[in-house]
Simulated scan of single mutants.
Amino acid sequence: MNAEPREVAAVGEDRRLDLELGATAVLAILFLVLRLLAVSRWDWPTVTAVADTFDFGDTFAIAFGTIAEQPWLTGVFTALLLPLVLLRILWPLPEHRGQLAFTTLLGALVLVTIAVAMTVTYANPWTLLGAAGFGALLVAIRVFAHNTRLRQLADTLTGRIALIAGLCVLLLAVLDDTPWTIREQIVTDRDVLTGYVLEESPGFLHVLTDDRDVLIIPTVDVTARTALD
């Protein structure tokens, strides 16, 4: 008698997982496209040239570089998202009880890691303090502000974590125009230029200059390369 409801529940879980995976894939692709556009400063010929050097093996470096290059924005977004995710796990809304997803747990782990790493790296506790303060505010609203617009806003934020997180990621992609490789000074037989080596193919360097021109330089012409801060 109970087999059919269980099968329906299993189908529902599979569909929800498929939707989550599909949405994550779309977000990842859109993130990469926006990063290419931002790095190229929205110049389509430059976008095309940069895309020719792109390797999906660079995806992790691109994601990590985006977080590291915008520490203040990353800190603010982390301070906002971390309390929402923890509340979703520890004090879920009635409609979310019994629906804890693996992606939510993974998101909490990633956000905690980012908050701690930024605190240690920059010796700046404001991300953790901001998360604690925002979390305390949300808890106070849910405890004391019953049936108010403020409570509705807090519940809406808690229930739309995935959407908010996706918007934050895309905003970071748009605002960060720094490439994901180290900025270098490259000395050749004819010139000295500064930029970012996007690809080292056999015999050639593909360099994105500070002026956002993509140059292909024979490695035999390169006499020195120096990493810049």
Rank of each mutant, 00 (worst) to 15 (best):
V139G: 09
A140P: 02
A140T: 11
I141Y: 01
R142M: 12
R142H: 15
R142E: 09
V143R: 15
V143E: 12
V143Q: 15
V143D: 01
F144C: 12
F144Y: 14
F144Q: 06
F144K: 09
F144H: 14
A145H: 03
A145K: 04
H146V: 09
N147R: 14
N147L: 08
N147C: 03
T148S: 13
T148D: 01
T148E: 02
R149S: 08
R149Q: 09
L150E: 03
L150H: 06
L150K: 04
R151H: 09
A154M: 04
A154W: 00
A154P: 05
A154K: 09
A154C: 02
D155N: 09
D155L: 06
D155F: 05
T156K: 03
T156A: 15
T156Q: 00
L157S: 03
L157F: 07
T158K: 00
T158E: 14
T158G: 07
T158W: 04
T158A: 14
G159K: 02
G159I: 09
R160F: 06
R160G: 07
I161A: 07
I161H: 04
I161E: 06
I161C: 00
A162P: 00
I164C: 00
A165H: 07
A165E: 08
A165F: 08
G166K: 03
G166W: 05
G166L: 01
L167R: 03
L167D: 00
L167K: 09
C168T: 13
C168L: 02
C168V: 01
C168Y: 12
V169C: 07
V169I: 11
L170I: 07
L170S: 10
L170K: 01
L171C: 10
L171E: 06
L171F: 07
L171M: 09
A173C: 05
A173D: 02
A173H: 04
A173F: 06
A173L: 09
V174D: 00
L175S: 11
D176P: 05
D177G: 10
D177Y: 08
D177L: 00
D177R: 15
D177H: 15
D177F: 02
P179A: 08
P179M: 11
P179N: 14
T181N: 12
T181H: 10
R183G: 06
R183K: 12
R183P: 05
R183T: 08
R183F: 04
R183H: 14
R183E: 15
E184L: 11
E184N: 13
E184P: 01
E184R: 13
Q185C: 01
Q185T: 14
Q185L: 13
Q185M: 14
Q185F: 04
I186N: 02
V187A: 12
V187I: 06
V187N: 05
T188G: 03
T188F: 01
D189S: 13
D189I: 08
D189F: 06
D189L: 12
D189R: 14
D189C: 10
R190N: 15
R190Y: 10
R190C: 02
D191W: 04
D191H: 10
V192C: 03
V192H: 05
V192A: 13
V192M: 09
L193M: 14
T194A: 15
T194G: 04
T194P: 00
T194L: 02
T194S: 13
T194M: 10
